[in-house]
């Protein structure tokens, strides 16, 4: 044979000057700032009991509507008295807003993460199937169009109202409107990847469909889904807060940021702290997650810019 054996030595290898995704992630400012903020909120929610001796549901009728920095004795529901500074004041039932804000982080994060996981899992499955099997596609996508036409907030509110206010109901109610968005994303990836010659090559060497989806298509959805999942997490936290704020979400005694704000609405002009403190934490959390999402998108999947 005329073609000599081409040794693929190290110096022949096409060198890539791009640093690995992990290095790029660690260098990205958005990821750093967002990650740092998010870690703080996460730690706060995990170690809430170390940050305050009080229970967020402890009622103190004698200490109602105290301003931030109020020093006094607060009682928990078992009657133990604590000499504390109510850093963020107390609400109309004399509950310590600081304790409620710290514990409220838990609910927000649980809702955000659960909704992201559920909607990504369900959406990916439907999207893969719809993208690959034409007859499923026609039916499923029409249904998704319909679902997307209903404003997310109305869909979520009605679902909660019908199934009764509980954490699970809220999580499911918020996941449902997010699913079509994931389905669309995954489907569009599947449709473009299945045109790739390497997928056609896999078809022509007889690889069964489920293996093609698993080996060649699914790996391409991971980066966009991480990005999309992060943004869903952020918007789910917002939506949960909105539901609670409107009084149609998680029951009012549960400490959630939205519930604290709903509680503070009536006396807002005199005691704005009941709205501002949880508002700041809520905004910071969502900001952290969105910055993380931005940074992830820029490093993992630059093409996704603007498509969410």
């Amino acid at each position: 044979m005329n073609t000599e054996v081409l040794p693929v030595e190290d110096d022949e290898i096409v060198k890539s000057n791009k640093p690995s995704p992990w290095v790029r992630l660690a260098k990205n400012t958005s990821v750093r700032v967002g990650g740092f903020l998010f870690s703080i909120i996460l730690l706060m929610s995990l170690f809430a009991s170390l940050l305050t001796p009080l229970d967020p549901t402890d009622i103190n009728p004698s200490n109602r509507l105290k301003p931030p920095g109020y020093e006094g004795t607060l009682r928990d529901n078992d009657g133990n008295k604590y000499q504390v500074t109510a850093r963020m004041g107390t609400d109309t039932l004399g509950r310590d807003i600081y304790a409620r804000v710290v514990y409220g982080a838990r609910i927000s994060l649980i809702v955000g993460i659960a909704v992201a996981l559920i909607s990504v899992a369900v959406g990916t499955f439907i999207g893969l199937v719809a993208g690959y099997f034409r007859w499923v596609d026609a039916i499923v996508m029409r249904f998704m169009d319909g679902l997307m036409a209903i404003p997310a907030i109305l869909l979520a509110i009605s679902l909660v109202a019908l199934s009764g206010a509980s954490l699970t109901a809220v999580i499911i109610a918020i996941s449902v409107p997010e699913i079509p968005r994931v389905v669309r994303l995954v489907r569009s990836i599947v449709l473009s990847i299945r045109e790739e010659p390497y997928v056609e090559a896999a078809i022509s060497v007889g690889t069964p469909t489920y293996l093609i989806l698993w080996r060649h298509v699914l790996p391409n959805t991971i980066s966009p889904l991480i990005v999309q999942g992060t943004f869903i997490c952020g918007s789910a936290i917002l939506l949960e807060a909105i539901l609670s704020f409107l009084g149609v979400g998680i029951p009012p005694e549960t400490p959630t940021w939205g519930n604290i704000m709903a509680e503070g609405r009536d006396f807002f002009q005199i005691y704005p702290h009941a709205i501002f403190f949880p508002g700041i934490f809520l905004s910071l959390t969502v900001l952290a997650i969105n910055m993380l999402g931005d940074g992830l998108r820029d490093t993992l999947d630059p093409r996704m810019e603007g498509k969410f």
């Binding site: 390497y198 090559a201 078809i203």
Partner: peptide
């Protein structure tokens, strides 16, 4: 599927013909 092995194809674009992750 059993017949597929008898006919094989090489495509135009060398950059897209191989799965970059494998």
């Amino acid at each position: 599927r059993p017949v597929r092995k008898d006919v094989q194809i090489v495509f135009q674009d060398p950059y897209r013909s191989l799965n970059p992750r494998r």
